[in-house]
Amino acid sequence: MNQETTYFFLFITLLASNFCLAQELYSTSSAQVEFFSEAPIENIKADSNKGISVLNLDTGEIAFQVKINTFQFEKALMQEHFNENYMESEKFPKASFKGKITNLDIQQNTTQDVLIKGDLRMHGISRSVEIPAKLQLRDETLILESTFNVACEDYEIKIPKLLWKNIAEIIQVDLTANYKKY
């Protein structure tokens, strides 16, 4: 094998590996997760923009993760109680999701309604869930938006009886992620 053939192989191999990589994986480390609790005495809202996620557009695989202590509340003491008393973030530092988009068929510049099936894990408990989402591809950016409900009881997040008027049992979660091609 002469020198030129070697370089040719080298070039093709690198091109191929780059190509494989580039076409499928999308990632973000600034996904926004917001949740909302509506109860008779007070409405509580918190958000984090430090969600990390990877989406494989070829296979539909998706992984999502947010650290519990990155959620910002209106009241700092509430934030401390959220971490210390409810989510126990030192024991269970993150909420994560791993699953697959079931009906993926995305075209440039269109919005597709998709259904994501997978396991949602938080507070040490894992549950199978189905989450509806909207997916949109704009050039190199992939936008995912989703709203779903989480029942505190499903994840053994205990609300004292005294505080049921302050904290809702079903929490609404809003998710927005702007993925870039990896």
Partner: peptide, 11 residues
């Protein structure tokens, strides 16, 4: 490089 290893890198 797949979904899992990329997630670990981001983390």
């Amino acid at each position: 490089q797949d979904v899992d290893s990329l997630m670990n890198a981001l983390e």
